[in-house]
Amino acid sequence: GSPGIQSFLPPGWEMRIAPNGRPFFIDHNTKTTTWEDPRLK
């Protein structure tokens, strides 16, 4: 199987799917959430 997208996120980050189907990202380091992919910064 191919590695999940989770493995490509920075340490402490998690990806979830919102009720509307959009992915969002949780930064457990700062306890914040964002719509922006942290890998694109």
Results as ranks from 00 to 15, higher is better:
Asn29Trp: 08
Pro19Ile: 09
Pro38Gly: 01
Ser2Thr: 12
His28Arg: 05
Trp35Pro: 02
Ile5Asn: 13
Leu9Asp: 01
Ile17Leu: 12
Glu36Pro: 00
Ile5Gly: 15
Ile17Glu: 07
Asn29Leu: 08
Phe8Asn: 15
Asn29Ser: 08
Pro10Ile: 04
Ala18Cys: 08
Arg16Pro: 01
Pro19Asp: 10
Phe8Leu: 15
Asp27Val: 01
Pro10Val: 04
Arg22Val: 11
Glu14Ser: 08
Thr34Asn: 02
Phe8Arg: 14
Gly1Lys: 10
Leu9Trp: 04
Pro3Glu: 12
His28Gln: 06
Gly21Lys: 06
Phe25Lys: 00
Gly1Trp: 10
Gly1Glu: 11
Thr30Asn: 11
Thr30Asp: 05
Pro10Met: 04
Pro38Asn: 01
Leu40Ala: 14
Gly1Phe: 11
Pro3Gly: 12
Met15His: 03
Trp35His: 06
Pro38His: 01
Gly4Arg: 01
Phe8Tyr: 13
Asn20Asp: 11
Asp27Tyr: 03
Asp27Ile: 01
Ser2Val: 12
Leu40Val: 12
Ser7Ala: 14
Met15Tyr: 05
Thr33Ser: 13
Ile5Glu: 13
Ile26Arg: 02
Pro19Trp: 09
Arg39Met: 10
Pro11Val: 10
Ile17Asn: 06
Pro11Ile: 08
Phe24Gly: 00
His28Ser: 07
Ala18Gln: 07
Trp13Lys: 00
Arg16Leu: 14
Leu40Asn: 15
Glu36Tyr: 09
Pro11Asp: 10
Ser7Leu: 13
Asp37Val: 05
Ala18Trp: 04
Pro19Cys: 03
Asp37Gln: 06
Ile17Gly: 02
Lys31Trp: 10
Ile5Asp: 14
Pro19Val: 09
Pro23Arg: 06
Thr34Lys: 03
Glu14Pro: 00
Ile26Met: 06
Asp37Arg: 06
Pro23Asp: 02
Leu40Arg: 06
Trp13Gln: 00
Thr32Phe: 10
Ser7Trp: 10
Pro11Trp: 08
Ile5Arg: 09
Glu36Asn: 09
Ser7Arg: 12
Phe25Met: 00
Arg16Met: 12
Phe24Glu: 06
